[in-house]
Amino acid sequence: MATLTHYIVLSSILFGLGAIGFCTRRNALILFMSIELMLNAANLLLVAFSNFMADMAGQVMVLFIFAVAAAEVAVGLAILIGLFRHVREVDITKFNVLKW
């Protein structure tokens, strides 16, 4: 029987993977995906706790995280496109000046 511990460990593994990806990759789009991975780990944890505590509030929180993730991606990708117009590159190490 999968216990809460299982879910917590799974969630932390996923979060850790996301963190590793975020710190080590250079492609901005992969960074976005790493962030999504971390957010999903958090979601999983919320759902798991919600289930094991029999409290729906956790699930509602997940929905809010969805909204935040959507907003983050929309604005983040818009910024990325704006940057791309100047640098013509999606490598974050190339985004190394403050102003164009």
């Binding site: 216990t3 809460l4 511990t5 917590i8 460990v9 969630s11 932390s12 593994i13 979060f15 850790g16 993977l17 996301g18 963190a19 590793i20 975020f22 710190c23 080590t24």
Partner: peptide
């Protein structure tokens, strides 16, 4: 630091949550 951070996180949480259930 990325690798360290990630691995630490995984390990820490795994150890820390031992027996949560």
């Amino acid at each position: 630091s990325g690798a360290l951070l990630g691995l630490c996180l995984i390990g820490l949480v795994a150890v820390g949550t031992k027996g949560v259930s």
